[in-house]
């Protein structure tokens, strides 16, 4: 069967299979990451990155399979769109988590100077405290 297919087609077939499998692999990593990682910030990592790469590879496979036709343009547009919007969406989610006062789980930092900017802290984190207050009735919105 396969001998009848020309060489170029076989290469394309192989490339599509590789791209789809790689896409599935990275999406799987992203799914595992979202389920396993400890907090929202860490989960946002895999959600934005492994998933974007997985989606990108799968879409590239689709574009390769469609070849030179009009639908390929849409696939490439979709690819670009996913690559621009996905990290922005992850940033929006992480930022909203920071705004509503969720503190990330951090391991002990290995480096030296953590407390240098301690005096800058309160003003930076004021939205956090506002978010906490909002639920207990501090109506500062007037």
């Amino acid at each position: 069967m396969i001998d009848a297919i020309p060489m170029g087609e076989q290469l394309r077939f192989a490339a599509i299979v590789i791209l789809v499998v790689a896409g599935l692999f990275f999406t799987f990593v992203s799914a595992v990451g979202v389920l396993r990682l400890p907090d929202i910030y860490a989960r946002a990592h895999t959600a934005s990155q492994a998933d974007t790469l997985g989606a990108g590879l799968a879409l590239a496979a689709v574009a390769l399979a469609l070849g030179w036709q009009h639908a390929t343009v849409y696939t490439v547009l979709l690819l670009f769109f996913v690559f621009i919007t996905n990290p922005t969406a992850a940033h929006a989610i992480a930022r909203s988590a920071a705004e509503s006062g969720i503190t990330p789980v951090t391991s002990e930092p290995t480096a030296t100077d953590g407390g240098e900017r301690a005096d800058d802290g309160p003003a930076d984190s004021s939205p956090n405290t506002d978010g906490e207050d909002g639920s207990t009735g501090g109506g500062g919105s007037a």
């Binding site: 896409g23 999406t27 992203s30 799914a31 979202v34 929202i40 989960r43 946002a44 959600a47 998933d51 974007t52 997985g54 989606a55 799968a58 879409l59 979709l78 996913v82 996905n86 969406a89 992850a90 989610i93 909203s96």
Partner: peptide, 13 residues
């Protein structure tokens, strides 16, 4: 929200 966002990306794919 993050889970639904990933779900949405998967749906697109």
């Amino acid at each position: 929200l993050l889970a639904v966002n990933v779900l949405g990306t998967n749906t697109v794919v």
